Amino acid sequence: MKVKVINQSKHALPEYQTPLSAGLDLRANLEAPITLGSLERRLVGTGLYLELPTGFEAQIRPRSGLAFKHGLTVLNSPGTIDADYRGEIKVLLVNLSQDPFTIEDGERVAQMVIAKHEQITWESSESLSETERGAGGYGSTGKS
């Protein structure tokens, strides 16, 4: 699938890191490094603008290495970029560690996955079909 992109960053377009990768790594596009203190959150620009086809979204997700090693994650994970959005792609990052973390210009801060989606229409009803699980919620299918 081809996706129109405007790249106003100082960096090359995102690339898949391996032939079977689902996500493209997004890079911070910064004038100066940003330091996130413990529990601090910040929007980080990428300099990228997309035009997604109807029926697709871009999901912004954490990078596993940053999350594991430094506690840096995407706060509204996954963040959704709708097909009709034309603004800059920004990443809402939060530092969940106790230590400050500095984001440098060009650092890979998140990954973007393009996903197909459907829109629904509601069908009002007085009942739902029965299932083995029924109304069992959190933890209902795990160990007791």
Rank of each mutant, 00 (worst) to 15 (best):
S97R: 08
S97F: 07
Q98R: 14
D99G: 02
D99F: 07
D99I: 00
D99W: 04
D99N: 15
D99T: 12
P100D: 12
F101Q: 06
I103E: 00
I103Y: 01
E104L: 12
D105P: 14
G106L: 08
G106R: 06
E107F: 13
E107N: 10
E107I: 02
R108Q: 07
V109T: 00
V109S: 01
V109R: 00
A110E: 00
A110M: 02
A110D: 02
A110W: 01
Q111M: 05
Q111R: 08
M112Q: 06
M112W: 10
V113H: 02
V113G: 07
V113P: 11
I114Q: 09
A115W: 01
K116R: 15
K116A: 14
E118C: 09
E118P: 00
E118G: 05
Q119F: 13
Q119V: 13
Q119A: 11
Q119H: 14
Q119K: 14
I120N: 12
I120K: 04
I120M: 12
T121P: 02
E123D: 08
E123M: 01
E123G: 00
E123N: 06
S124D: 10
S124R: 04
S125L: 05
S125M: 05
S127K: 01
S127Y: 03
S127A: 10
S127R: 01
L128W: 03
L128Y: 08
S129Q: 04
S129P: 15
S129E: 09
E130I: 10
E130R: 11
E130A: 12
T131I: 00
E132K: 14
E132I: 12
R133L: 11
R133C: 11
G134T: 05
G136R: 13
G136L: 14
G136C: 02
G136V: 06
G137E: 02
G137I: 02
G139H: 09
S140E: 10
S140Q: 13
S140V: 12
T141W: 05
T141Y: 09
T141A: 14
T141L: 15
